[in-house]
Amino acid sequence: MSTKDPIESALDWLNDGHKVAIATVIKTWGSAPRKAGSQLAVRDDGLMVGSVSGGCVEGDVVSNALDIIGTSKVKLIQYGITNDQAWEVGLACGGDIKIRIESLENNG
């Protein structure tokens, strides 16, 4: 009854013929909401399972994931604290996180 493992969702989606990317928190500084290792699986239609923050950067991670989905590419993104610029993507909690997004391959 626990929330679904992003890896399990990713495999199910690939088996259903979807393209999939996985985002992983690889480094955190300060009071980051999710610890390193936390993962978010993203499907080609934008559906997501898991999390990489408290909801602060997921939207941006999904759009970056969709950019590379199906390309066998990796993207590294760093998010810091939101500054005064309104609506800039960032972490309200004052932490910094580095995220690696990997597009999964539908073979094997």
């Binding site: 493992d5 890896i7 399990e8 990713a10 495999l11 690939l14 088996n15 996985i22 990997e102 999964l104 391959e105 539908n106 073979n107 094997g108």
Partner: peptide, 13 residues
């Protein structure tokens, strides 16, 4: 990572 790796991860878990 491909499907094989994902399957192996789930099996080990």
């Amino acid at each position: 990572m491909d499907k094989k790796v994902l399957e192996n991860i789930l099996n080990l878990k």
